[in-house]
């Protein structure tokens, strides 16, 4: 008895599921979803506009203002990180250029994070460590700059 309901469900699912999947994958359903998303989006935007006007009328901030602020803070944060990386790059290169290199060329100030790993196997041998070393010190520097532990 206990299993009977499950068998009935399984039979029902076997009969219904393929049709539902086909419907969900159909062009008609996609068009419906596209139209539905468009209407929802338009209605939400309209509601936001109206509520913002109302709140601004009473000199109150709306959610959209807070959102804009958060996005601006995020943009500033990103820019700051970019500048930090740039500073690390400059600091990394500056002392090295003062030191005379044995072969007459400036050496990278830091061991690059791009060298061929020791003990790497011969397979895929066309791979790493073939180009000039200190290509991406910025990434490595930034990594240590934001260390957590």
């Amino acid at each position: 008895m206990a299993k009977q309901w499950r068998e009935i469900y399984n039979e029902w699912e076997k009969a219904v599921a393929p049709g539902l999947q086909q419907f969900a994958a159909s062009d008609g359903f996609r068009d419906f979803m596209a139209a539905s998303a468009k209407v929802t989006s338009a209605l939400t935007a309209e509601f936001e506009r109206a509520s913002r006007r109302w709140l601004h009328f009473w000199n109150l901030p709306a959610a959209t203002d807070v959102r804009k602020l958060r996005q601006q803070v995020a943009a500033v944060d990103r820019e700051l990180k970019g500048l930090k990386n740039l500073v690390f790059d400059v600091v990394a290169v500056a002392p090295a250029s003062d030191e005379p290199a044995t072969n007459g060329t400036a050496q990278p100030a830091r061991k690059p994070a791009v060298s061929k790993p020791a003990g790497a196997k011969a397979t895929g041998s066309k791979s790493t460590a073939k180009k000039a070393p200190a290509k991406k010190p910025a990434a490595a520097k930034a990594a240590s700059a934001v260390e957590v532990s």
Partner: peptide, 15 residues
């Protein structure tokens, strides 16, 4: 790239 560099550094620079 930052995460890979960090892992590489912590793992002894063996890739």
């Amino acid at each position: 790239p930052q995460a890979v560099a960090k892992v590489n550094q912590m793992g002894g620079e063996v890739g």
